[in-house]
Write a protein that binds this DNA or RNA. Structure first.
Lengths: 228, 228
DNA sequence: CCAAAAGTGTTAGAGATACACCCATGG
DNA sequence: CCATGGGTGTATCTCTAACACTTTTGG
């Protein structure tokens, strides 16, 4: 039992984790096992421990509820409407996250019946205000993608330029010109061609590239912009 | 006295309020009256009430501590390092705010000995992790200014193009070309020329403009970008 | 008439866009 | 040999950046 002189709200973290499955942008949801909203789908998340950093909470909850680890994570916003949780005042710090969903198999656990990927345009009703959180996360994802090379988080380590282009087209929802896209994306200097090509394809094998994280970190320091 | 099954952190809001005083970008600080950090300068802010929305808390604390009301406010980020407050675990939701400092006279109050504007390049040591919060707020201010017409929040209702240009130059820290700046800023269609000119100046009186908030709201809805 | 800031157009260069065909591979 | 996607260059246009003088007003 914990006592305070002044009332303290509960604080949770919730994660909007996006992945790309062929032509579908998907989001990772869990089915709640406990009230309130038992049986409903929700963003993975949970209570922040007292001695735990916020981002660490987000990573822990994600791992506990979905088995997903090792992912790109950034703070999105904090949602604190007084009535957003029927139990008590709960303020939630929302995180935006991006993974390559093939590298991150999901497995339900704590407080969750199951975890699964849903296409963002075919979602079930979500618990709490998680639809609002997700809307904001999607808007942020689309706008960040245009001027930061976040997209590579969706891809495997080695990828082709066509994969990158499809990724952008899927998330932005518009077709892009192949030659112009390649020029732009290569002109960033962030893509390193490997000495390898695709295998097992029934057509000319594409050049493989990797994303140069070090170079990106360097560029970011001295102010950096690109634009798709 | 309040009791919980699980420990709850305290939650506060803190505001980085910027104002423009001629050639100086200033930030509003309060001198703390209570421990911890009694006597130190800090961002205005305080504990969130249990039934109170986050943004409402920020507005209330600002009014209580500095007398400033009626301002532009947007959520910046949430800071939650476990040891950021020596008393107990305190998670703070930081807000970014912009005012015309001549329209918003400050008056110290609750929990504060006094409130005052400080130039951002001549700050005292700040309490807690408020220097980190302020750094982030400044970075966000500068980057937002380039592609959103936030700057008008600094200005009085009626202003001249030269005032707008000075504002941008002060915050971005670089000189801008007068003709190009005017072309760009007018081409947004967000500035409405008034049937008035400056008065009491010892030179040619400049055209006065107002910022068209309605038009801006309209543009924002259908996706909108500009770039200084 | 002098000081101070307001106001105004043009040109050159860079970057963005539009666009179509040949190539390599596996089946 | 055919189907599939991989890979490539150029011309046009638009947007940006650089740049200097005349006008108005008050003192």
């Amino acid at each position: 039992m914990y006592s305070y002189k002044y009332p303290h709200p509960a604080v949770t973290v919730d994660c909007a984790v996006f992945g790309l499955d062929d032509g579908d942008l998907k989001v990772l949801l869990i089915q709640r096992d406990l009230e309130p909203f038992a049986g409903s789908w929700a963003l993975p998340g949970g209570f922040v421990k007292l001695e735990e950093d916020l981002e660490a909470s987000a990573r822990r909850e994600l791992e506990e509820e979905t088995g997903v680890t090792d992912l790109y994570l950034e703070q999105l916003a904090t949602f604190g409407a007084p009535d957003r949780d029927p139990r008590e005042r709960v303020i939630t710090v929302a995180y935006l996250s991006i993974v390559n969903l093939f590298d991150h198999p999901v497995t339900a656990a704590t407080d969750a019946r199951k975890a699964a990927w849903f296409p963002v345009d075919a979602l079930p009703r979500l618990a709490f205000d998680h639809e609002d959180i997700l809307d904001l996360a999607l808007a942020r994802l689309r706008s960040k993608l245009r001027w930061q090379p976040l997209g590579f988080e969706f891809l495997p380590e080695k990828f082709t330029l066509t994969q990158v282009q499809r990724l952008y087209e899927t998330i932005l929802g518009e077709a892009l010109d192949k030659r112009n896209f390649r020029k732009k994306i290569l002109s960033t200097g962030l893509l390193v061609p490997l000495e390898e090509v695709e295998t097992d394809v029934a057509h000319r094998a594409a050049q493989l590239y990797r994303f140069d994280r070090k170079e990106y970190a360097r560029l970011q320091k001295k102010g950096y912009g690109f634009e798709i």
